[in-house]
Write a protein that binds this DNA or RNA. Structure first.
Lengths: 112, 112
DNA sequence: GTGATACTTCATCAATCGTTGAACTGTTAA
DNA sequence: TTAACAGTTCAACGATTGATGAAGTATCAC
């Protein structure tokens, strides 16, 4: 029998783990936040609502690039979109996301 | 002046944002968790300590692959390593990581 | 020492990612 | 309608990633 270890270990039983799709979705959420530019965006959006051109001016990023970044964040439901006239305003989807971002930023700050 | 929007917006002042390296590190941490295989690994490690061949047997993953996955998780300080004889045991680095993983898995579970 | 077990590292390769300019859509003002 | 502004989508490109087999290291039993 190949691949199985020669020695034995205690089994961990009675543990209900999340579904396969749950892992895929959660990983996608993590990955969406897993880019410095997008993470900065998330942190900025935790300060309130911003429209795209405003973010472009603040970050020095091209509108096209920004739009792609926001698109990914939106598709993973990290941010919400709202149109008002010619402008589109973005903000974090909910407070869970805000906590998540803050938690990890704090974590890396304290382990410095 | 190119790149600046023609209209104006209220300024958000007096906000101290994290350093650039903080964003890079935090993003690296998110990215490390941002893969289904690695996320499953993290969730499994939240149940306790496992050695590599034990994880290989449980997940049906090659030792080499597993080792690379654990290497990345270790380099981002998500997991701890401990050698005991011929075996190397892995576990989550701290309870922050456990909360982080559980938080996101719960988040995607409730938005189903 | 030798051999066996338990990993890790290395090099490779296909697949995915992030940015970009160009083209396109939507909204408002003239 | 036309023009201008605000943002999105598309195609393409180099860069990064993830899995793999082969080779290497570490520990133990003999």
């Amino acid at each position: 029998m190949k691949g199985a270890p020669a020695h034995t270990h205690p089994r961990r039983t009675g543990v209900k783990s999340p579904s396969d799709t749950a892992f895929v979705r959660a990983a996608a959420l993590f990955r969406a936040a897993g880019d410095p530019s997008r993470l900065k965006l998330l942190q900025r959006l935790s300060l309130g609502e911003w429209c795209v051109s405003e973010l472009a001016a603040e970050t020095g990023t091209q509108l096209s690039t920004l739009s792609q970044q926001l698109r990914l964040l939106h598709s993973e439901r990290l941010v919400q979109r709202r149109r008002e006239g010619k402008h589109v305003y973005y903000e974090l989807a909910d407070s869970h996301i805000e906590h998540l971002v803050q938690m990890v930023l704090d974590h890396v700050a304290e382990s410095e």
